[in-house]
Structure formats: structure tokens, C-alpha cells
Write a protein that binds this DNA or RNA. Structure first.
Length: 572
RNA sequence: UACCCCGUGGUGUAACGGUAGCACAAGAGGUUCUGGUCCUCUUAGUCAAGGUUCGAAUCCUUGCGGGGUAACCA
């Protein structure tokens, strides 16, 4: 007999939090716009690797499409051939797929170069754009400044016929880079500098990663973006706050061009994360100047770096859904990200024992040569993960920080004469401390209580501390890379005038454990697997550097550590 | 100095003129063979001053604070 499922019994579907963009879309839908369609796009420029800030945008754009039963395109905004590369195009697609999203159409702004060119001729013909012969410096001088209106270009009143001829000759390659531009004729005294006759096309004799040498004039972002949106029938063009001031121009083009659709631009605040930088320029600099091993260095906030660090797409999506979407500029605490991966990995990561900073102990009343195979749970959160056997022998490794000769108050771990439980095994008591000539502890001699393998002590004495261990005879060593914040300061972008932002780099962001001792089952760990090293942290088997039988571990994040907090508080 | 946007606990985000809620962080306790997980509880907020209203985080005005904008970048 099965219990009939009642509505109460089935867990409610997770409701993603609403935000202001939903309000806007709902209003558009209610007003009957776009035939009830919702279509978005994620429009990266292929000039760098995607980072976690892009993840927010990806989750937003694809998430909106999912929520409203619409579609989301992936569009490469490739209008500047001097900065864009195929390598970036490839990595971006990989990252979006990895995050778990499937685009409807894969497009490139360059797919629309011919249409954009004709749009430009249309503006010229209608007297709304002209060819300007001013140099770059002159253009910016004529533009005025934030508080001073601009002056009209002397070429502003060229006839449409003359401009059209010049524009065609620009395309034909008759002029050198920078010799002329196509400019919109809008308003040189507008308080919005974007409307002061913005440049639409510039001459660039450059190789483009897709169109090769086909073009020597390229549209500017403003002239390309909205029109591409319209050509793709995008309904809602979501972008970050710094484009807000471009919106009047975005709309001006759509109003003055023969486009069928009129998408709407909506801006939101980009993600900022503490203890890292999130600008492509700075990330590129870190890569180029070798402060990190590459775009996929596990300390990088890039999606490829975060992936190699051991973050899961599920945890990233949960993070992005949880932080909200608004128009306030703010910085998310790194701890929120860490919380999202801990929450995910706690449920799925297999447990194992690994001693990162080993200290040798000898159980003097445990027979030499004897091996006891002890059963250990693979994941207490998931019974289906089963159990495994771990070898216990007379000589073991324990964590050096799990022993203190002079234990502070509330220290539950090993110290002379004190008893602790070895996880899954027996309770031991420290009988003797061996040291080298300079006073460093080299070995502990302990005894074990054979009656304590399962359950408590027989005489009722309490053993509060539990520590992890590895059989010295069976342990193996493997590279274990311990990562920390890339920057020591919480807001690495906030540096005083004249100070290099890179001076905030954390010198301890990567520490390789010198002689970690791992339990034997870990030898067969495969690239891409997640583990929790009990009492230590979550670790990821690096798919890039690991080989069969020779895994390389990356610390994704530490476990929450109540003792560390107590210690820290005691210090100061 | 011009224009635009934004101000809700420490951080981020809800509340759509009607009980200021959630998450993270912080703190206290409980459970636990991970000082993990889990559970309970606590601290803590509407930038300020006026105005409209029976009633304002929400609408208006002013002030203050933060951010954006002057590439032939996106």
C-alpha cells in the first residue's frame, strides 16, 4: 500500500525571488506588448573570460526566459576586432554550457554587419548622420565636457549625397584608420554626452576573428547593440547600470531606423564581490603579468577558475538566484558564495580522511604489524553513499594542530595525559611527547582503549574531542593546493590615489601542503570529483593536473570552524 | 562644476499607501563519533528634515551621502 500523495505531502516548488525586472516585464505583458513574448540575450564581448559577475547576468537573462516561457540567445558583441579573439568565443560558450544553460540562437554582432551598414546609409539618406573628418582629438574637443555643451562639427552640414559617397568609399577602403567617422546628427548641447553626435562607424583596417578582412569599417557598440536586439526580436535587453545613460541613444536609433521590433533596455546593478576584483581589464592584467597561472587559476573569479576550484554550477546558480537583482550598487560578502558551495557539497561530497600537516603518533599497546580495517561512513548526509574500510595500524599520522602541549581553555583535542577519539576508531590517550634537539614535537606515544571502538567508554568517562588520522603505513602523498582570497583587502578596488591595486594581492593565496598524508582510497580519486576531508574542508580533484592514480587536490573552501573563531576571539 | 541613477539591520535583498520579512554574517544554547551538518533563540534597519494622508520605507520638496557619465571601448 502506498500512501496517496496529498498536495501537502509534495514539497512546494522552489519559488525564485521576484525583483523589479519581473515587475517591468509583467507590466509589458499586461500592456500587450511583443505579442506576449519574452526574449532575452546574453551579449558578452569575446575579449576575455567570463567571471562570476557574468554568471549573475547569465542566470538573469536565461532565468527570465525560462520563467516566462521565452528564449535567450547567446550573442557575441564582436564589433571591435582589435580586442577580440576566438579563444574567448570558445571559452565563453563552454562556461555558459557548464553553468547549465542552453541558448536558443548563437549569434554574433558581426552576423549583422551588412544590415547595420544599410541602417547607416538609411540615416545618412535621411539627413540624420554625416561623415565627419575631424580627428579623434578634435572630436573629443568639440564634444565639450560634462558641464559644458559641445560645438557642432564643421562637417555637420555635409549633404546626404556627399556623406553617402564618402561612407561608401570608407567601406571600400579608400581612407586610413581614423581619417573619418560616421556620426549621428543629434544634439551637440545635450546634457547627455552620448547624444552629442556620437560616432557610429570608425575606420579600422584590422583582421576580425570571424569576418576576416571583409570589413575595414566597424560599427560602435551603441550603433550595433540595439539594432542587433531588434533584428533578433529581443524584447528585453538587460544590461548593467553604466549603460543607463546610453538608453536615450538606444531608443533614438530604434525610432529613426526601419526596424520592426522595439526592444526595451533595462539596467541592473552589476555584481561586486569582496576580496576580489571583477573587471576584465584587471583580470587580464593578472593573467598577463603572471600573478596567477592563467584565466583558470582556481583563485580567479572567472568561471573557469571557479570551476577548477571545485564550485558546482548548482551552487553558482543558487548564489545568483539568492543575491537578488536591483539597482543599488553593493558588494556581496564572499561568505555568501562560500555558503552556497558548502550547502551543496555538504549533501553530495564523499568524506575522506587526510592529514595536511602530519604529526606521527605511535599506539604503544597496539600490536606491531597488525592491520585493523575499520568501517567508515562515506557521507552521513546520504546513506546511499555507503561505507568503506580504512586501515588502522600502530603508527598513524594526525594533524599537528590537533595536539597542544599546553592546551588553552576549551581545547578538546590531544595534549599530554588527555584522551581523544580517533574518528571511527578507538579512543587514545597521550602518554609521552618526543621532541628534537630544538624542542619541536616529533612524535607522540599514545595508548588506545580497546573497549571504545563502537560507542562510548565503558566506565562512563566523557571523550569530547574527535580527531582525524591516517595509517602511516598506508597513507600516500599527493599535491594538495590550499587556496585563499586572491586579495588580502576586502575591497581591493578601493586603493588610495597612486597606489597600485595589485599591492593588495594576498601573498598567501596559494599554499601547497608540503607532505599531506591521504587515506588510501583517495588514490583512485578521479578528476572532477568532490570530497570533504573530514574536519578540514572541501576538496576538488583538479581535472587539469590530475592523472590516473595521481590525483591533485584543490581546496574549494574550508569547513566552518567554530574553534578557529574561539581562538581568534581569544587573540584579540 | 552639469546631467542621470540609487539610499531599508554589519552585508545583500523583500515589503507595490496598511504587522518592516528573508539570506549571509555575528552571538547564545541544544543534538552529534566531523568544533561539520541539523535544531532553537538573540542582537541589529527604513539617510535627515519638512509636507500630503486616518495611515508613509513606499507619494512630494529640500538637504546629505554613494554611484555613473566627457573612447573612433564594450
Amino acid at each position: 500500500m502506498t500512501t496517496p500523495s496529498t498536495p501537502e505531502a509534495s514539497p512546494p516548488a522552489p519559488v525564485l525571488p521576484r525583483h523589479f525586472i519581473h515587475d517591468e516585464i509583467d507590466a509589458d505583458l499586461a500592456a500587450g506588448k511583443n505579442e506576449g513574448r519574452v526574449q532575452t540575450r546574453f551579449p558578452p564581448e569575446p575579449n576575455g573570460y567570463l567571471h562570476i559577475g557574468h554568471a549573475k547576468s547569465i542566470c538573469l537573462n536565461f532565468g527570465l526566459a525560462q520563467r516566462y516561457g521565452g528564449k535567450c540567445n547567446l550573442r557575441f558583441d564582436d564589433t571591435n576586432p582589435t580586442k577580440e579573439e576566438q579563444e574567448y568565443v570558445d571559452s565563453i560558450q563552454e562556461d555558459v554550457r557548464w553553468l547549465g544553460f542552453t541558448w536558443d540562437r548563437l549569434t554574433y554582432a558581426s552576423d549583422f554587419f551588412e544590415e547595420l551598414y544599410h541602417f547607416a546609409e538609411h540615416l545618412i539618406t535621411n539627413g540624420k548622420a554625416y561623415i565627419c573628418d575631424l580627428s579623434g582629438d578634435e572630436v573629443s574637443e568639440y564634444r565639450g565636457s560634462l558641464d559644458k555643451p559641445g560645438r557642432e562639427s564643421p562637417f555637420r552640414h555635409r549633404t546626404p549625397a556627399e556623406s553617402l559617397d564618402l561612407f561608401r568609399r570608407m567601406r571600400a577602403g579608400e581612407f586610413k584608420d581614423g581619417a573619418r567617422t560616421l556620426r549621428a546628427k543629434i544634439d551637440m548641447s545635450s546634457p547627455n554626452p552620448n547624444l552629442r553626435d556620437p560616432v557610429l562607424y570608425r575606420i579600422l583596417h584590422a583582421h576580425h576573428h570571424r569576418t576576416r578582412e571583409r570589413w575595414c569599417i566597424y560599427p560602435m557598440y551603441d550603433f550595433a547593440h540595439g539594432q542587433c536586439d531588434a533584428l533578433e526580436s529581443i524584447t528585453h535587453s538587460i544590461c548593467t547600470l553604466e549603460f543607463e545613460i546610453h538608453r536615450p541613444l538606444y531608443n533614438w536609433f530604434l525610432e529613426n531606423l526601419p526596424v520592426k521590433a522595439h526592444p526595451r533596455q533595462i539596467e541592473f546593478a552589476r555584481l561586486n564581490l569582496s576580496y576580489t576584483v571583477l573587471s576584465k581589464r584587471k583580470l587580464l592584467e593578472l593573467v598577463r603579468d603572471k600573478h596567477v597561472s592563467g584565466w583558470d587559476d582556481p583563485r580567479m573569479p572567472t568561471l573557469s577558475g571557479i570551476r577548477r576550484r571545485g564550485y558546482t554550477p548548482e551552487s553558482l546558480r543558487a548564489f545568483c538566484d539568492g543575491i537578488g537583482v536591483a539597482r543599488n550598487n553593493g558588494t556581496i560578502d564572499r561568505a555568501v558564495l562560500e555558503n552556497s558551495i558548502r550547502e551543496d557539497l555538504n549533501k553530495r561530497a564523499l568524506r575522506a580522511m587526510a592529514v595536511l600537516d602530519p604529526l606521527k603518533i605511535t599506539i604503544e599497546n597496539f600490536p606491531e604489524g597488525q592491520i585493523e580495517w575499520i568501517e567508515a561512513v562515506n557521507n552521513p548526509e546520504d546513506p546511499a553513499a555507503g561505507t568503506r574500510k580504512i586501515p588502522f595500524t600502530r603508527t598513524l599520522w594526525i594533524e599537528r594542530e590537533d595536539f597542544k602541549e599546553d592546551p588553552p581553555k576549551k581545547y578538546f583535542r590531544l595534549s599530554p595525559g588527555k584522551e581523544v577519539r580517533l574518528r571511527y576508531a578507538w579512543c587514545i590517550t597521550c602518554k609521552e611527547v618526543k621532541k628534537d634537539a630544538s624542542g619541536n614535537v616529533t612524535e607522540l606515544v599514545c595508548t588506545y582503549d580497546p573497549a571504545t571502538l563502537h560507542g562510548a567508554t565503558t566506565d562512563g568517562r566523557k571523550v569530547k574531542g574527535i580527531i582525524h588520522w591516517v595509517s602511516a603505513e598506508h597513507a600516500f602523498e599527493a599535491p594538495v593546493r590550499l587556496y585563499d582570497h586572491l586579495f588580502s583587502s576586502e575591497h581591493p578596488d578601493d586603493v588610495p590615489e597612486g597606489v597600485d591595486w595589485k599591492s593588495g594581492l594576498n601573498p598567501g593565496s596559494l599554499v601547497v601542503a608540503p607532505h599531506p598524508k591521504l587515506e588510501p582510497s583517495l588514490q583512485h580519486a578521479e578528476g572532477g570529483q568532490h570530497f570533504q576531508f573530514e574536519r578540514v574542508g572541501y576538496f576538488f580533484v583538479d581535472p587539469k593536473d590530475s592523472r590516473t592514480g595521481a590525483p591533485v587536490f584543490h581546496r574549494t573552501t574550508t569547513l566552518r570552524d567554530a574553534w578557529a573563531r574561539i581562538e581568534k576571539r581569544a587573540e584579540g
